[in-house]
Structures are given as structure tokens and as C-alpha cells.
Amino acid sequence: MAKLKLALYWAAACGGCDVAVLDINEKILDVAKLADIVFWPIALDFKYHHVEAMPDKSVDVCLFNGAIRSSEQEHIAKMLRSKSKVLVSFGSCACFGGIPALANLTTRAEIMERAYIEAPSNENPNKTLPQTKVSVPEGELTLPELYDNVLTLAQVVPVEYFVPGCPPTVDLILKVVNALATNSLPPVGATIASDKTLCDECDRKKEKKMISRIYRTHEIIPDPERCLLEQGLLCMGSATRGGCGALCVKVNIPCRGCFGPPAGVFDQGAKLVSSIASIYQTNGKQDIEKMVNELVDPAGTFYRFGMSVSMLKRRIPQKT
């Protein structure tokens, strides 16, 4: 079999997904045996115009991590789509918006204001903001445009597979590599992880789903055997796809939901609001107020990784 041609790209992401690929350690040699890497900005010195010069569909697989929030990222996403036979939405940012999508709770104008004018470390008396085009004596300089909304990869171009995770675990990456090596990829549109929820895969003892106080992670040291949610920690396992190996809950940290909604759940955050609200024991209005106060940041907690694919997708800008 001829070697596969593999491309990797990062858009709005932290770089952790790329590091996760390197985390497969010596198995990277198997990948090198299986595939020629034709594009990987974090590791190899290929330029955009090298990819542009490739014929359409000449890349067998592209692992694309990161959300789309600038004109450059959208451009590269479209380019890699046309050059790739299989485009994989790799990691939580590409799949659901991820941490960058929390920016959808604000607007581009507010982000610019904060970053370039308001922040105490700035010295910007003329209130200069980044421009997409600037003329200087030497010619015109350009910058990509920052978008108002953080989008997922699949909201910009069609995608064959989704590999969730912040970052995808080594086991999942090897699963993808094996599927490629043995030509046994699942049906198009599949999410390569588990179809169950994390709760289904968690070994902790579940007794009585009732809480009377919500704790933040720094407030208690939880019992390592018992269900974290039952101990009052907001564990997202009940509305989060499994397949991660329950890494966080195994080390006493509640699930933060990075694998996104499980099969059959449309809106991860809405599901979590209803499940948390239904297990909180209340005797009247006072308790409800207490619960609401204990839950400091519901949108950021329940949509920590999923803002772009949520029903609302972003904060509604207020009319002024």
C-alpha cells in the first residue's frame, strides 16, 4: 500500500491537540511508517502556498484542530477541505468551539476594547486597534480579520469524522491511526469515541442522587470512591460523551464536559441544567436562591466546551 498523505492543522486552539499527537510517543514511528506528513505547522516547515499547490483531494487525511474565528482560519479550513479526502474535526475546539468559544459570551468590539484599550498593562493613548489593512511606506500590510462569533469546523466546511477531547486522548488517536492503517473507518459523520455517557463508564459508587449544596473544586477534597456529583461537585459526566477513559474523575476531578454531548443529546448545557436542578434538594424559595448563588457561572460551566454547538451559540447583543 502506498503511504498515506497526512496533514495536521491548528486554528483557534491552544496547541494541546498537536502535543497530544506527539504524546503517542514511540507510536509516532508507526504513523511515520504509515503516512507522509505533508503539512503540520507546529512541527514542520511547510508553508500555505505548498498546500495550495497540491492537487485537490491529494491529502488522504487531515486532522484539523481548533475552532474558526478569523478569516485566515476559515480560508485554511476551506483550502484543506478541498485538498483532503478525509477531514477530521480533531479535538473539542474544532468539534464544539471549545474554550475559545466562551468568547461568544462577549463581542468582537468588547474583546478589542478590553485587550487593546482597557487592560491596565496597555499604553495606547490614541486607542489604536488592529486593522486588517495598513499602508506603510514599504507597501500594504494585512492581518486576518477576527470574527464576532467562534464557529466549529463543521459550521464552516463539511467534515467526515469528529474526534472530541481537550485534547483527544492517546488511545483515541491510536484508534484513529489503526482505523486508517487497516482501512476500517466508521461511517461518515461518526464521532470516534464512546456512544455512552461518561457516567456509564465511571467506576465511582453511586448511591443517592441528591445534593443540598454545590461545591467548587477548591472548596472540598472529595471522597475518592463516591460519585462526585453526589458530593456536590458539578461533574458533567451525565451529559458528556464517554470514551476518554474517565481520566479526570479517576484523579478526583469532576468531568468538565470536554467530550461534548453524548449520542442523542442535542444541547449539553440544557441537559446539565435540568439534571443539576432536579437533584438539588429544596424547600422553598430560599433554597433555590442559595442554589443559584452557589452556581457561580452557569453558562461557563455547562457550556465550557460547547458554546458554538449550543442551541443559543452566543450571547445576544443588547440593543443600545
Partner: peptide, 12 residues
């Protein structure tokens, strides 16, 4: 809880 969250989303 939902009310508080919708407020964060800017929903009346």
C-alpha cells in the same frame, strides 16, 4: 438556574 444562565446569554 436557567434564568441566571439565560441572563448570561443576554436573553430577557
Amino acid at each position: 438556574m436557567l434564568k441566571k444562565m439565560l441572563e448570561q446569554f443576554g436573553i430577557d
